[in-house]
């Protein structure tokens, strides 16, 4: 007799599994911001009770390996928090997360870049931060530069780069990590059409190789195009989870109803 939990561990088809995943934030204004405030609150002997904001509320989620899942929902619904918890940037308040393999995150335009370093140096640094070893980096550096189409500019400091060039370099460095699970959080909102197409192509390839993709976006067309499955979140809970067309359709309908409701009010 094997317990339920052990079964979950051995489920070889899953890439991501969360159990009762909950994340609460303390309202930022409730934390003493300076030592002065800290002393004052301590002297008053009355620390204000922390008000908590529930960003994720007992989320149970299973993602099969090779699945491309889109996450939609209004602002503050918990999409980005979920990504941050899956990638270990944040720690859950309660609940558990299980992942299979290396998790990669697609950063916003070169979050890791230092303006005074050259494109090549920044590519190396970003790759190291993503978890590539030095030999891996050296083996893939040429590919990264080529994918970013930055051959002539590789020795120039990135402060001289255009935002498009930065985006290409950041994307190239992130994608060459070759993660088992790739999480993308609206990184593609910028960039020209040519570049966006290459990103889609790459994500489709990534999925075709049997790797898992989690995509957060407000661009429903983008979600429909890449993801077979969509999870609709609101107030940190799953509203609907199913085939992309179905969920996106329901979401649009609900939004329309919501908008009409707003208009009807005087």
């Amino acid at each position: 007799m094997v317990s339920c939990q052990t079964m979950a561990f051995t489920d070889t088809n899953l890439a991501i599994r969360t159990v009762g995943l909950t994340k609460r934030y303390r309202y930022i204004h409730d934390r003493p911001a300076r030592v002065k405030d800290l002393v004052i609150t301590a002297l008053r002997r009355r620390l204000p009770r922390a008000r908590m904001l529930k960003a994720l509320d007992g989320l149970n989620l299973k993602v099969r390996r090779g699945e491309s899942v889109g996450f939609i929902g209004p602002n503050g619904s918990g999409k980005s928090t979920l990504m941050a918890l899956l990638s270990r940037v944040l720690r859950p308040t309660s609940g558990e997360v299980y992942v299979a393999g290396r998790v990669g995150v697609l950063l916003e335009v070169g979050a890791a870049f230092h303006p005074d370093l050259t494109g090549e140096e920044n590519a190396r640094l970003t790759a190291a931060i993503f978890g590539m070893s030095r030999s891996e980096i050296e083996a893939r550096l040429e590919d990264i530069i080529a994918f970013a189409e930055l051959e002539e500019y590789r020795q120039m400091p990135v402060r001289t780069y255009s935002s498009g060039m930065l985006l290409r370099l950041g994307f190239a460095a992130a994608t060459h990590l070759d993660p088992d699970i790739l999480l993308v959080d609206e990184a593609l909102a910028v960039g020209d059409e040519h570049f966006q197409r290459r990103c889609y192509d790459w994500m489709e390839e990534h999925a075709a190789r049997g790797q898992t993709l989690g995509l957060v976006s407000h661009d429903l067309a983008q979600i429909r195009r890449i993801c077979q499955r969509v999870v609709w979140l609101e107030h940190g809970r799953i509203v609907q989870d199913g085939p992309a067309e179905e969920v996106v359709g329901a979401y649009l309908e609900a939004e329309e109803r919501h908008d009409q409701g707003e208009e009807a009010r005087p």
């Binding site: 561990f9 270990r88 720690r91 997360v97 299980y98 299979a100 393999g101 088992d180």
Partner: peptide, 11 residues
């Protein structure tokens, strides 16, 4: 199927 196994994330 082969591939990485599901493991708890250590925070």
């Amino acid at each position: 199927t082969s591939g990485p196994v599901l493991r708890p994330v250590r925070y």
